[in-house]
Simulated assay, not measured.
Amino acid sequence: MITFENISKVYGTKKQPITALDDVSLTVKKGTIFGVIGYSGAGKSTLVRIANLLERPSDGKVFIDDVDLTTLSKTKLRQKRNNIGMIFQSFNLLQTGTVYENIALPLKLTGIPKKEIKERVKKYINVVGLEDKLHAYPSQLSGGQKQRVAIARALAHEPSVLLCDEATSALDPDTTDSILNLLEQINNDFGITILLITHEMHVVQKICHEVAVMEQGKVIEQGSILNIFTEPKTETTKRFVHSLFNEQVPESILKDLKLDGKVITMSYVGDASGDPALALVSKKFDVYPSILSGRITQLKGEPYGRLVVHLKGSDEEVELSINYLKEKGILVKGYNNEVDINAS
């Protein structure tokens, strides 16, 4: 559906070039929600603007529905953009126009008949839940309501692709969740492919099927949301994942605990998060588990949890208990060590 093929973007002059994107290749599957996450300056916003050629790449190709946008004439590109909706952080609403006018005007400019415009405005204002705000002005709306209008405006073109550039960054946590729920609903109900740019791990955790992590203009890691959370490979990805799980245990406590057993990190994925495996460890083995920290959350509807646990007991009994936990589908690692514990 969306393919970036060896995309590079360089600003500045030959003497002082600034590389925003460096040979980026990504494929976003049809009907999925794909997240691109990175810290400020990673190149993610440049990438999403290249997706509809608001920015032209210095090198590489961009395909939407197997059409290379970089080869299209201005007229054909303009037509193709009608199939690509975009939502911005700053909403970009016409302040002097009502909600109806903000949604209807772009449709009018593309030559859609007046009757059909009315039908589309009514349909998509209902989708975003703002039927009672149709004649209100942006100044009379909250931030979340403004973003819903922007979403309705993008949907009114009935696109197959929706680009979201930090669409929730200006919103409070509760409003962010409501907008994310709306985007997930749109993906489910209309099958629209969504490419979502963010610097917030909570956003990709909540609705994305897949995620790519960017740093200094490059994609440094990508995969399913479960794989990225359970097996982060790069330090940047680990920082993003750890931002949702405060696992730090004071070193003074760890020092004493490690003398009598082992401190481990347990990752529960899917059904394993509801398994009482840890409780059973103390019954099956001569080991006494103590939870030092932890949290269970949802990854695209799948339960996922991480616990830091002290297993008190002899080396032999601890190793047996670790093997048992692994047999139950639990990922076990040493605390602050991303390498699996290879218990025998």
Rank of each mutant, 00 (worst) to 15 (best):
R81G: 04
L226N: 13
E251F: 15
K74S: 12
I7R: 09
N188W: 07
T198G: 10
N336D: 13
G217A: 09
E5V: 00
G85C: 02
E319V: 07
V219R: 10
T236E: 11
K328W: 02
L109A: 11
V128D: 03
I186L: 03
V318H: 05
E166H: 10
A167T: 06
V211I: 14
V263P: 12
E247K: 13
Q140G: 13
R78I: 08
P303G: 06
N227C: 04
G111W: 07
Q205W: 01
L94I: 15
Y324C: 10
K44R: 04
N6S: 06
T19Q: 14
N6F: 00
K233N: 11
T3M: 02
I117C: 08
S45T: 15
E251R: 15
E327H: 05
V36D: 01
T176A: 06
G294E: 06
S243R: 05
L226Y: 06
N52I: 06
V203N: 00
P173R: 08
G305Y: 05
G334T: 05
L196N: 01
I33L: 01
D315H: 13
M86K: 04
C164G: 07
N323F: 10
I179D: 04
L109G: 04
K328G: 03
P276V: 06
K233V: 07
Q79S: 13
H135I: 09
Q79V: 09
K326W: 03
N126F: 05
S8Q: 07
G85W: 02
S314H: 03
I186S: 01
E166A: 12
G329K: 00
S344R: 13
N337T: 00
G144K: 05
L94S: 08
V318P: 05
Y39Q: 12
S40H: 05
V149K: 04
N52V: 06
I228D: 01
S58W: 04
H157E: 03
E131T: 12
I192V: 11
V219H: 11
S267D: 14
P303L: 12
A167V: 09
K255S: 14
V219C: 10
N92A: 12
T193P: 03
I264D: 10
G301H: 02
V211G: 00
V36H: 00
F245S: 08
V10G: 04
A150S: 08
L105E: 09
T193I: 01
P113E: 07
V269C: 12
L180T: 03
I50P: 03
A156Y: 01
I125D: 00
G97R: 15
V48A: 11
T27W: 02
T19A: 11
L155C: 02
S273F: 09
P276Q: 08
M214N: 14
D65N: 15
G143N: 11
S252M: 08
Y335G: 05
C164V: 05
V213S: 09
L107D: 05
Q222E: 13
N6K: 10
S314C: 05
N181V: 00
I225A: 10
I341W: 01
G129I: 03
G12K: 02
K258V: 15
L47H: 09
R295F: 11
A136F: 13
